[in-house]
Structure formats: C-alpha cells, structure tokens
Design a protein around this nucleic acid. Sequence first.
DNA 1: CCCTGATTCGC
DNA 2: GCGAATCAGG
Length: 225
Amino acid sequence: MSWTDERIDQLKAMWEKGMTASQIAEELGGVSRNAVIGKAHRLGLQSRPSPVKSNDAPRKKPVAAKKPAAAPAAKEKPGQPAPSPAAAPAPRAPAAPAAQPAPAAEPQAPAAPQPRIVSVGPGGFLRQGPGDQQAPIPPAPPRRLVPAKPSPEIADKTSLLDLTEKICKWPIGHPGEPDFHFCGEKVNPGFPYCVEHCGRAYQAQLPRGTRRPPPPMPFGGPRVR
DNA sequence: CCCTGATTCGC
DNA sequence: GCGAATCAGG
C-alpha cells in the first residue's frame, strides 16, 4: 500500500486522536505498525507520551551491526537548542456550562487551511481532515441528548434482524449498547443507506480549494478499542 | 512475555 | 520516502 493523501489524513487524525500505532496500522490496513510510526515521524507528527524516552541515553548503539553497513556515516546532531515547547496545552477554561448563548456571529477562524475532509464512517467512527479535528471534547458538558424513550422499550428500533436490502443500515449508537439499532429508513436505491446517511457515508472528495462548510460533525465519540 | 513509540539505515 | 529491524521503557 502506498501513502495516499487520504491515508495520510487518516493517519494524522488517528495519531492525534491518541490511537496507538498498532491501532492505526490495523485501521488503515496494509501497513505495519512500524510503517505507521515511521510515516508519522516523517510527517513531523510528534510522539505523544512515548513509553521510551531516554533523556540523554547516549545513542551509541549502532543498530546496524547486523547489516553490512557500507559507510558508517557519523550522524551527529549539531547543536539543537531546545525546541521542545511544542504546544503547551493551554488550560482550557472550562466553557461554563451555564447558559452561555454563543455569540451570534463567531468570526470564522482566519486561518482555515487544510481543506480536505474524509468522511464519517458509520457509527460515528470519524474519518476527517486535520482542519477540524481539534475538537477538545474534554469537559463533558452536561449533555443529555438522549431523548429518553417514552416507552420503556425501544420497541420501534430497527434491529439487526430487521435489515433488508431496502432499509438503511446506518447504525445508531454503538454496538453493544442497549439501544443500539439501525436507521431503518428507506434506502437510497442502490445504496445501503438512506439518502440522508448516504450523504454522510459518501462525502465526495471535492476538488481542493473548493469551499467546504464542514458538516457539524456530531462527535459522539468513537469507541476506543 | 506483552505492549508502546523511537531510531536507524538499507532499500 | 519507505518500513523492517532493532532498541528501550512500561
């Protein structure tokens, strides 16, 4: 497999999302964990908490002992000041959950580079571009979006057994959850999902530079494996 | 042992 | 640029 733009995007997104190299490799498929790590580094992605961090463990161990190294090029890193302070995690002032009517007009971020969008996989497993994935989700807002079912049962849910060629198979929720079910709408002829969900599942890769109103990615949160 | 990421270096 | 081999810490 080669590193297409899409795959690189996914790699970035996943990497920054905190997935391990193994997970990413598995998800992308066709690449090894090492490949992912190697690529990540080449991309300049920085290692998050890496288990192995020798402060100044002298790297004098030429691993090349086994392979016939032709010319042992001495690779000494010249003085490298102290570039560490990458991005200090700005203490996010917890957005006061209290009614904070968002300012009417949020000035669009001046720099909105990185067009590109990938797509949202079923179940909310995201696949998106670097432009927006910052979503800091941390202070779980007292959200309570679940429309508490009026009836004790989820009677009208579409279960796995109810799936046919004609109904939308878009998963609602996550497998394993009590109310996990499927959309159940009429499918968009020729697709496994209804029209609405087709829109989610198949986001056309618009030509670069095209403006792109990022869809309100409902960040429900993919399950961490 | 398993896992993790980091690094090196032949290709 | 790529990634296997290797290192090294948890």
